[in-house]
Simulated assay, not measured.
Amino acid sequence: MFGWFKKNKELDVFAKTLAQDIAKRYPPAMDSTKEKKISVNRLSRILEDSYNKAQQYKQANKLGVYRKARLGNNFRWELKELGYSSEFIDTATEGLVVYLSRK
């Protein structure tokens, strides 16, 4: 039972790390400006790199429905705390959930 709590804590840390990795490559300040200083292709690559990391984490650690939802939720909240727009948060989180749902 205690292993379950430990795994959830690791999952929470991973979700925060994933969001912070995006913030390093695409800072929230760039998201909030009207002038987009990054191309759509570059932003797509940044998000896909993060999704691939999440997919590798999923393969190494069995994620059921509850843990996938927990990862998506913690990822969403970390992006919000970092200061991203709600549009970006929704898009990034939806992409993460879709990637994790693939077999």
Rank of each mutant, 00 (worst) to 15 (best):
L63D: 00
T91Y: 13
L79F: 01
K62W: 09
E87W: 10
S85T: 15
V65E: 12
G64D: 14
L63R: 03
N73G: 06
Y66T: 12
N61Q: 13
L63T: 03
E78G: 01
I89E: 04
R70E: 12
G83R: 09
F88Y: 14
S86K: 08
G72D: 05
T91C: 09
I89P: 07
R67A: 08
A92W: 00
R70N: 12
K62M: 11
R76G: 04
K68Y: 00
L63V: 06
E87F: 13
A69M: 11
N61D: 06
G83D: 03
N74A: 12
G72R: 03
F88G: 01
G64E: 10
K62L: 11
G64R: 04
Y66R: 12
K68N: 09
A92G: 05
E81D: 12
A92N: 01
R67K: 13
W77P: 00
R76N: 15
V65S: 11
D90Y: 07
S85R: 15
E87T: 14
E81G: 13
G64L: 04
R70D: 15
L71Y: 08
E87R: 14
T91D: 12
D90S: 13
G64P: 02
K80W: 04
F75T: 02
L82D: 02
G64Y: 08
G64I: 06
S85M: 04
E87Q: 14
E81Y: 13
Y84I: 02
F75S: 06
G72Q: 06
T91Q: 09
D90F: 08
R70K: 15
G72Y: 04
E87K: 11
Y84T: 05
W77V: 07
E87S: 11
R76V: 02
G72N: 06
A60W: 07
L82P: 02
T91I: 12
F75R: 03
R70C: 07
